[in-house]
Amino acid sequence: MATGLRPLEVTGKRAARSRSWTRVPATLRVNAWRVLLLAVIFSAWEAAVNQGSISAQFVGKPSIIARQWVDVALHGTLFYDTWVTLTETFAGFGSGILIGAACGFLMWWWPGLARVLDPFLVMLNSTPRIALAPVIIIVLGIGFNSKWALSFANVVIVAWLTVYEGTKVVDRDLVTLMRALNASRWQIFTKIVYPTVLPTLISTFKICIGFALIGAVVGEFISAKAGLGHFIWKSGSIYELNLVWAGIFTLMIVSFLVYLVIDRFERALLSWRRS
């Protein structure tokens, strides 16, 4: 800013302190606070266990968690389990989005189909898809397919409904204009309906990836041979609370990274929205 205007000077000791602090870039400052927050939480936890007010056996202890976490990562199955959960999640996410979007668009193309299917969709949407888990596992077995299917079931309805609702809010005047321009139904679809709905669909990606992860992990909880859900459940069943925490923290980091990837993807696809 090259203007002559400056904020009012703060004087004295406070001024010196705030000036040196504000010279640090904002993101760095925020990150510093974040690290501090984590440090406080974990030291308080550690201290509480050392002092004896909570039990290391039933709640876990940060220093042991860290040691065992490194151990399962280096010598155990943690990376393999993470990989398994990730593939299940992305398979369910990708197929769910594609099939769900296709079904949503088909309902725009054939309004009769929409009228017939409407109550069933509402039913499917309000039923927790996790309730399907026993059926899916019995039919598809305890391997990859059943987790994929659960993850898919979680995503497909959301994508389907999002796209269908999206097609309902397509500007009628725009469709009239297209018809005045003599556009075919396919042209109206590719040039108006699809681009109108796409941002709405993409904006649900972040929700959908979460749902996909839930499907995969719950499936692994119920019955599996590998995966982070299986790792957590197995550790819990033998009262290895420190390993349970290691699994949970891994899951948190994984879901956060996945979220970041989807967020980047979304921004890249919707770049026209920002100036």
């Binding site: 500007d171 005047d173 725009l174 009239t176 204009l177 297209m178 005045a180 321009l181 003599n182 556009a183 042209q187 040039k191 108006i192 681009p195 941002p199 026209w272 929205r273």
Partner: peptide
């Protein structure tokens, strides 16, 4: 050819690609 009160420009297209919509169709 037809024009309404709303400009009905497609927000995801740049102006150049908006004005050729009719020709494209």
């Amino acid at each position: 050819s037809y024009m309404l009160q709303k400009d009905l420009l497609l927000p995801w297209r740049m102006i150049l690609d908006n004005v050729i919509l009719g020709l494209e169709i």
